[in-house]
Amino acid sequence: MATVLVIAEQAKGVLKKASFNALGAGQDLAKRLGGAQVHALVIGQGVGDAAKQLAESANAVHVADGAAFANPLAETHAAAAIAAAKAISATHIVIVASTYGKDMAPRVAARLGAGIASDVLSFTGEGNVHFKRAMWAGNAVATVEVTTAIKVVTIRGTEFPAGAKGLNGSVAALAADGGAPKTKFLEFNEVKSARPELTEARVVVSGGRGTKGDFKPIEQLADVLGAAVGASRAVCDAGWQPNDLQVGQTGKVVAPQLYIAAGSSGAIQHLAGMKGSKTIVAVNKDPEAPIFQVADYGLVDDLFKALPQLSEAAAKLK
């Protein structure tokens, strides 16, 4: 009998939004497996409330709560996940492909002799379920089969709906310790920004070489739209913006509802990082720029003229 284990992610006892999408993915998978049970696991310190919240969308919730799990170390958290998976004989383990999930999920797979499909976009088939995932930065979508009895799947949170509520599963403490990790947590420097995180933002405004390094119009529009700011590789390589804003195959791959590319030519490496966006807007002086081939709406104009107008008009809509 198939059993799905969804590993939630939390920070300071508060569930990350994508954890609910992981529950949605777990429920989808369970249905395809002929009505498997969906268990959830939350690991941390002071995660009782998070566990109660998970219970609404799971048949049972396991809680690894204690000082050993206070920091999200891959080794300790994987140890708890392995203990839970063994306790319930989980056949499928689902976790969001965040940096937390990517860090620990392979360790869980290694220990359980499981294959791992990472950054999965959707499931296909029933019974023997296969996984669709992006390769070559989204330039191809592969359908993969995990041939092992136990399968570990990391999912792209934005591709799955939040889990249905009303399951009201029971909550129980999990007997697990963190083992003897070979890593020690020293500190976490949170990036405090008024803007949303690039990979989680609903709207992204990005600038390319056409900005000549002046990101004021980009930032102004981003603030009006509540958007994250991104940049092309050319901009980061020139040192105009930090590398962590880089959208592209070697930077961050984003898929927001709205992506506005200003002054970007549309290099393959940049397109690979944003092609999955729902609506793409391109603003560029050059009507021949390849970015217009992927844009839903293209505006041939100087970004220094068009973006302030766009900011003004968008502000009026609010």
Binding site: A117, V146, T147, Q293, V294, G298
Partner: peptide, 18 residues
């Protein structure tokens, strides 16, 4: 442990407008 069964192009984007 992971086999690639099929590789497809990503869903095509509808042609945009200027």
């Amino acid at each position: 442990k992971v086999k690639v069964l099929k590789v497809e192009p990503p869903p095509a984007r509808a042609a945009g407008i200027k």
